[in-house]
Nucleic acid binder design. Structure first.
Lengths: 136, 136
DNA sequence: GTTCTAGTTTACGTAAACGTAAACTAAGAT
DNA sequence: ATCTTAGTTTACGTTTACGTAAACTAGAAC
């Protein structure tokens, strides 16, 4: 028997609330098995959840993630659906590339800001010290 | 005299609405000069707006961006403020690094999905194929 | 002088993504 | 038997980041 998880185990692992997980189910992003009235999550559900959260961190809406992730579900998609999805994927890839650049620029911005703050703190601290700890 | 912009010029450039720009002002992220009752944006404001939007793409809330960006404003910060800000910067840098990884993983996911879809489309086209793409 | 054309203020509305509280269930532990 | 301890459903509330409409202003064009 393969590994299963309770809702609170997943919540703990990903540092989210059970409410969030149930919400994703409401939005039909997840559909765990049931044992009585309790939800039982399989490894597959866990992976899906992980992907959803990753998407979230990248600024994907739940609906976008849903569209992208539904590619792994069984059930036939017709050609139009597939084409639509391919287009969506291309756009998402492009936006990811842009975000990549955003990250690089923001990184350098943050690094610069950090240096300025560090030296400001140093100046403030040893209010005599000529500070020179700025080796990156 | 250095370059200035009207609100709709900026809106056009960044493909956002004027409402959005005024909203950022309400939230004290921007503070353009006035000429009569009209807003006049300087290059500095434009750069700020650009940074705000970049932050948004990276999932920063407006308040976070505001905190980070306020580093460039004049006005003294005391040591506690500076330290707090440095901590915030470190956290943001860490989260950016994680997001970097997220992007790499999502990229490969999307690429894989795209390949599967492409071949599905190809299969579908030559509609003779008995489909058997279920390799997980 | 009036008619566009931006621009402005004020204010209520809205979608997404949960938070939170209430009331209930079911399985173990004591 | 009852008391915890998850887990569940239902449903209203909340925050963020704007959308949208109404009513007003001010300069430019005719």
């Amino acid at each position: 028997m393969s590994e299963t998880y309770t809702i609170s185990e997943l919540a703990r692992e990903f540092a989210i609330t059970t409410r969030t997980i149930r919400y994703y189910e409401d939005e039909t992003l997840l559909s765990p098995r049931r044992k009585g009235q309790q939800r039982i999550y399989a490894e597959k559900d866990r992976v899906l959840l992980k992907l959803i959260l990753r998407g979230k961190r990248l600024g994907f809406s739940l609906n976008e993630s849903k569209a992208i992730l539904s590619l792994y579900e069984p059930g036939g998609s017709n050609r139009h659906q597939l084409q639509t999805m391919l287009d969506l994927l291309r756009k998402k890839q492009a936006s990811l590339r842009l975000r990549f650049e955003d990250i690089e620029m923001m990184q350098s911005y943050l690094l610069e800001a950090e240096e300025r703050i560090s030296s400001a703190l140093a100046d403030d601290l040893g209010n005599q010290a000529p500070n020179s700890n700025n080796q990156n």
